[in-house]
Design a binder for these strands. Structure first.
Length: 261
DNA sequence: GCCCAGGAGATTT
DNA sequence: AAATCTCATGGG
């Protein structure tokens, strides 16, 4: 199926930006796994070719809606973001399967993108079917050991044994602080991981995950180089970008990792 | 050997 | 409430 794109979108940049981990190069496109959906995807200029899923899913997953244009217009007036839009304007905020997203970011703690991807793929390969991400279920003791998750292993095991995906999906659209507090009751989920799940799978545009990169550039660009708590940094970004904070954060993250900030 | 990586949780101050 | 410690592993 071919999907017309009349707005800015860069598939490769979006996939590699660190919000999603289940993709692999496939010819001149990608093989993508989002929850129980596995499909191929290829971008040719303003066309997006998808094979194995439907248009509604692809548009939702890649954030292909009109809100992006308005966001770019707002960002163009921002002194920090404006210089980045030429290279990062095609980076979209994805909306992936919440359960897969939750496990991915619990695995992300004090890790790096290559290893996170290997860990998440390892979990899918060991317990999933046909590339799909395995649904929660109690796993045999020691079954996660070969995945080499380190001290995240016990958290992932507990999540598989206790989380109800329907409950997780039901958090979308509810009150921000309430959702974050509920996510933080889960093992291995603190402020940062909770806001990742909210930003990348539950549609909370005000979410602002503060990791080492955002902390660094947040201090440099929004606090005059002075120290600031993660909470203050997130507050300032929210005040500056409102419901587009999550997208702004993702652009800043990608640019910072590229040495652009 | 060192330091760092999309942190969380428990303990100490 | 903020600073500190530990957790396991791979890469530069």
């Amino acid at each position: 199926m071919r999907l017309g794109l009349n707005r800015r979108f860069d598939l490769g940049l979006t996939l590699r930006s660190g919000q999603f981990f289940r993709f692999a190069p496939d010819g001149d496109g990608f093989l993508i796994s989002d929850g129980d959906r596995v499909f191929r995807c290829r971008q040719a200029g303003r066309d997006l070719e998808i094979d194995g899923t439907d248009e509604a899913h692809a548009r939702r997953l890649f954030g292909l809606d009109g809100s992006h244009v308005a966001a770019l217009r707002a960002f163009a007036a921002d002194a920090v973001l404006a210089p980045l839009l030429a290279d990062y304007g095609g980076l979209r905020l994805m909306r992936q399967d919440p359960w897969q997203c939750l496990v991915s970011f619990v695995c992300s703690a004090m890790s790096n993108m290559k290893r996170i991807q290997a860990n998440v793929e390892g979990i899918a390969a060991a317990f999933g079917r046909g590339g799909a991400f395995p649904r929660p279920r109690p796993l045999p003791a020691g079954a996660l050991r070969p995945i080499r998750l380190g001290w995240r292993e016990k958290y992932v095991g507990q999540l598989f044994a206790t989380v109800d995906p329907a409950w997780l999906e039901g958090l979308a659209g509810r009150e921000f602080e309430d959702v974050r507090a509920q996510l933080m009751e889960l093992p291995g989920v603190g402020v940062k991981v909770a806001e990742c799940v909210m930003a990348f799978s539950l549609g909370f545009g005000e979410a602002c995950p503060v990791d080492v990169w955002i902390r660094r550039i947040g201090r440099r660009h929004f606090f005059g180089g002075r120290r600031a708590t993660d909470r203050r940094i997130a507050e300032r970004l929210r005040q500056r970008f409102g419901p587009r904070t999550a997208l702004a954060q993702q652009i800043l993250f990608a640019a910072a990792r590229d040495g652009r900030l």
